Amino acid sequence: MGRMSRTLITTAVMAGVIAGTAGWASGTGQEAVTGAPVGTEAWRAAGLPDPERMDPAGVARFFAGLSPVRRRELAASHPTVVGNLDGAPLDLRYEANARSVRGEFGGARVLAHDPRGRGQVVLVYGDLARAEHVAVLVPGSDVDANRVQPLADMAVALRRATGGRTAVIAWAGYTTPVGVGLDAATDRLAGVGADRLARFADGLAAVGAAEPSVFCHSYGSVVCGLAAHRLKAKDLVVFGSPGMRAENAAALGTSARVWAAKAPTDWIDRVPNVEFAGLGHGTDPTDPAFGARVVPAGDARGHGGYLAPGTSSLRAFARIAEGDVR
């Protein structure tokens, strides 16, 4: 049997496994949210600089040139823009988003909130401005502003595991797939998510936050793989990953340390690691040939149990976030 035939058969098997494991998502594919924040038209009409023409460093310079009074005026008059500008002062973004979400996300400060589509939100646990260590959690399918609790729970668990010393960000900042269907089997949504994640990390750097460790779950690891070569991060940790769209860790083009975890009971292990005709995400990052540092996850249960209290994976994640392992 030729290589092409084997690849086609494996791809067909992969499709069947995905369908049988979690069910194909019904309806049409998701439309990725892109472009400038809601309210940008009024912002531009007020003679303010176009958000789409500024990178996060430029945004930081713009706000640095304003008086404190003027900054707060902008947060009050254009909250949906200021609250979503990567590179804007953290406290100003919190203030602006508090006006928009009206206490909807209790227990966290809201660093970004986009109501378009299914909604996106970025939640912060801890003092991001002063924390010596920062962790960012990037989710997989079925997470949005209305279904962010599982991701928020992961963030809280990781912060507790570090003794509250690490600021943890729940980054539901891209349009995720719904279910495990064609969107989850391709990189279409991940490509847009990668752009947004890289810009978000640039925004953290622009305001002087600590370089983060980025933890990427399931389809979120595809996002992180595509962003890796331009993502400002000291660690890249993937768990429950279907692949990172890279043959090996070196192909990611990152200086970050790359880690990978997979539980023995995770259904993702039954999805063949192939990439063909746009389907599949390539090599299993826990395969020794990939070259990632393997995180112990033998006691994690299922696809979503990696940050459950008491698990070896959660303890390892906490040590990585705090820089306690080399």
Rank of each mutant, 00 (worst) to 15 (best):
M1W: 13
R3W: 07
T10L: 15
T11R: 13
V13Y: 04
T21M: 12
T21E: 08
A22I: 11
G23C: 08
G23D: 04
S26W: 11
G27R: 08
G29S: 14
E31L: 12
A32C: 09
T34M: 11
G35C: 04
P37G: 11
V38F: 10
A42C: 06
A46E: 06
A46W: 05
G58C: 00
A60M: 05
A60P: 11
A60C: 04
F62S: 03
R70P: 01
A75C: 12
A76R: 14
V82Y: 09
N84I: 02
Y94T: 13
E95F: 14
A98P: 06
A98M: 03
S100T: 15
R102M: 09
G103L: 07
R116M: 01
R116L: 00
G117S: 09
V122S: 10
L123T: 03
G126A: 03
A131P: 01
V134F: 01
V134W: 05
V134H: 02
A135R: 03
V136R: 12
L137M: 15
V138A: 14
D144C: 03
D153C: 00
V156C: 00
R159I: 00
R160D: 13
V168A: 08
A170G: 06
V178P: 00
G181Y: 08
L182P: 00
A185N: 02
T186E: 10
T186A: 10
T186M: 11
A190F: 09
A190P: 06
A194Q: 09
D195L: 12
A201E: 07
D202E: 15
L204W: 05
A206T: 04
P212H: 02
P212D: 05
G220C: 06
S221H: 04
C224D: 00
L226D: 02
A228Q: 03
H229V: 00
L231V: 05
K232G: 04
F239W: 11
P242G: 08
R245E: 07
A246H: 09
G253S: 09
A256S: 02
R257P: 01
V258K: 03
A263E: 01
V271M: 15
E275C: 09
F276G: 02
A277C: 06
H281W: 05
D284T: 12
D284C: 14
T286R: 09
A292Y: 07
A292M: 10
Y306Q: 07
Y306H: 04
T311S: 05
S313W: 02
R315N: 02
